[in-house]
């Protein structure tokens, strides 16, 4: 029965690899910077799934820390990039200014 799960995991790796390839296409082509940022965000989310699949393939539990770490880093990167594209700065000292 483990063979069945191995086949399922390898099939999912292939499917997710094609999905990530499509997101790389949008990341390179996207007409505006925000399209590229959306693709980058979704790419980070899929990277979590990919690393979980890798952990199952290798049978190790040490990679599961990386999943949570990449999730947190992708979220922070998206927040910082969105704020940078909106205001031009990331850390604001005057919260009421339009700059």
């Amino acid at each position: 029965m483990n063979t069945f799960l191995d086949v399922v995991i390898i099939f999912s790796v292939i499917v997710l690899a094609f999905a990530m390839l499509g997101m790389v296409y949008r990341m390179l082509k996207g007409p505006t910077l925000h399209d590229k940022l959306v693709a980058l965000d979704a790419f980070g989310v899929l990277l979590m799934a990919m690393i979980a699949l890798t952990a199952m393939m290798l049978g190790t539990t040490h990679l599961l820390v990386v999943v949570l770490l990449i999730g947190i880093l992708a979220f922070i990167a998206t927040i910082a990039f969105a704020k940078f594209l909106e205001k031009g700065v990331i850390i604001q000292y005057d919260r009421n200014s339009d700059e």
């Binding site: 399922v8 099939f11 499917v15 997101m23 899929l46």
Partner: peptide, 15 residues
């Protein structure tokens, strides 16, 4: 697992 792969693929198609 297959559901996760399927919805990831749907996200890529939408993008």
């Amino acid at each position: 697992i297959l559901g996760g792969a399927f919805f990831g693929f749907v996200a890529a198609i939408g993008l």
